[in-house]
Design a protein around this nucleic acid. Structure first.
Lengths: 109, 109
DNA sequence: TGACTATATAAGTATGTAGTTATACATTGA
DNA sequence: TCAATGTATAACTACATACTTATATAGTCA
């Protein structure tokens, strides 16, 4: 595969990280603050195994980082562009309301 | 499904459009100017059926528009945020070089 | 109308991946 | 060390979709 092909593959792979509603939920949850896995699980309401799987995908891709504290593992978003991209897309897809619903845009009240 | 779920589904779906290397190639090809299908096919070097399928996906999603002129159908990008998003991601993923390689950032020489 | 070019679509295969269940591993505290 | 809690992983199923081949549709020009 040539250089250009590799580039398109990489960019497509990055978008594929954001192309899953569960991962968007997780990232929205971690957007404002660092959180341990069990809090994300409670917040989203899916199985622990599933959330853990997605967190690992995001970690390996460098979108989030993690640290252990006692028996808990805390995750946080480190990709500086993630929030910007999601904000742009959420506005593109529908409206400012979506950005608010996803926790990406502060609501005004 | 509740309102919030629908929102995450929609945003994920938008990202999924960009999560395929072939569609990124097509969009990169159409980025600077309107082009008929056969030109896109020649430019990318995949089968006509495949390109046509992807163009339809992009059309139904509102990322591109099309018009018939004689026997040819011309496609063009109409989503105003697409180029911005791709530019941001391409820089995130690696470097400014990627943005140039994808035709999203003008190279300087 | 018939031949030709341009584009779209249908049917099929193959592959990737989200989610589940069950289980393993790690840490803490009694 | 044992029980309890928190997290990760393995094996599996189900489903979506990218790509191919073959064919259909649409337009042009003789």
């Amino acid at each position: 595969m040539d250089e250009t092909s590799r580039i398109f593959e990489q960019v497509a792979h990055y978008f594929s990280l954001l192309a899953d509603p569960t991962r968007l939920r997780i990232l929205s949850c971690l957007c404002s603050e660092e959180r341990p896995v069990h809090e994300v699980v409670e917040s989203i309401g899916l199985t622990q195994a599933n959330i853990s799987r997605h967190l690992n995908i995001l970690y390996r891709a460098g979108v989030v980082d993690r640290r252990r504290e006692g028996s808990a593992v805390y995750y946080r978003v480190i990709d500086p562009n993630f929030v910007d991209i999601c904000r742009t897309v959420s506005i593109t897809v529908a409206s400012r309301d979506i950005g608010e619903a996803m926790g990406l845009i502060p609501s005004k009240h």
